[in-house]
Amino acid sequence: MYYIIFVLIILLDQLTKYGAIKYLKGNQPLVIIEDFLEFSYVENFGAAFGILQNRRVFFVLVTIIVIVLILFFLKRNIYCLNKSIKISLVMLMAGAIGNLIDRVRFGYVVDFISVKFRNGYEFPVFNIADSFIVISTILIVYMVLFDKYRV
């Protein structure tokens, strides 16, 4: 089951990025919900929120290290971790690998989901992999803080 979740997340991420490249690159944003949600092609050469621009090698190395550490942690603790933490770690790895694929293939990460709020705040453009990274990180922090990650 964990492998299926892992593969599905990566496929969803890569297929949506393919769609963004094919249909959004060089075109006007596609408005989904006026003044709230649109799909807009962005090439992100940095990390979350565009920080640390043009540090490709750094991000590739850090991502590989994080993936190896998660795999090592899972292997070492497989029998004492509950299903929720395992799924969260798989989501985190899949999201990281989705963005890693972009960095290796293109030298940047394809972002395309743009959310705006009524007060004028525009959330930084993101992608499916970013969503899984953020959601899984929140879940992991919650489970660790409240000691809900063990069997």
Rank of each mutant, 00 (worst) to 15 (best):
Y108Q: 15
F36H: 08
G120M: 05
E34K: 12
V42Q: 11
I140W: 03
G120V: 02
L81A: 09
N77H: 12
K83A: 11
V134K: 01
G98P: 09
S84K: 13
V60K: 06
Y121V: 10
I32E: 03
R55D: 07
E122Y: 02
F146T: 14
S88Q: 06
F72R: 09
Y3R: 02
K86C: 08
I32M: 04
N127K: 15
V110Q: 12
N44A: 14
V141Y: 00
T63D: 07
L81S: 08
G19M: 05
F58W: 11
N119C: 13
M143L: 15
K148H: 10
I51S: 15
V31Q: 04
N54L: 00
C80V: 13
E43V: 04
A96F: 00
I138D: 07
G98L: 03
V109K: 07
I67G: 05
L89K: 04
F112L: 00
I140F: 01
F6E: 01
Y121G: 10
I101C: 07
F58P: 09
M91E: 15
Y3N: 08
R103N: 12
C80H: 13
L81C: 07
F146W: 03
I87G: 02
N119Y: 10
R103Y: 05
F73W: 14
V42W: 08
V141F: 08
L24M: 04
L12F: 11
G95H: 10
L61K: 00
A48V: 10
I85Y: 05
I9P: 01
V109F: 07
G107T: 09
Y3W: 10
V66D: 04
F36L: 14
Y41K: 02
Y108V: 00
K22Q: 13
I51K: 11
I101L: 08
R150T: 14
V31S: 06
Y149Q: 11
K86N: 10
R105D: 11
I133K: 01
S136C: 08
V42P: 02
K25P: 02
K25N: 13
S136V: 11
L15P: 00
L24T: 07
L30G: 04
N54V: 00
M1H: 07
E43W: 01
V60M: 15
N44M: 13
E122V: 15
F112N: 09
F126D: 15
F117H: 12
R55G: 05
I138M: 13
S84Q: 13
V144G: 02
R56V: 03
P124A: 10
K86V: 12
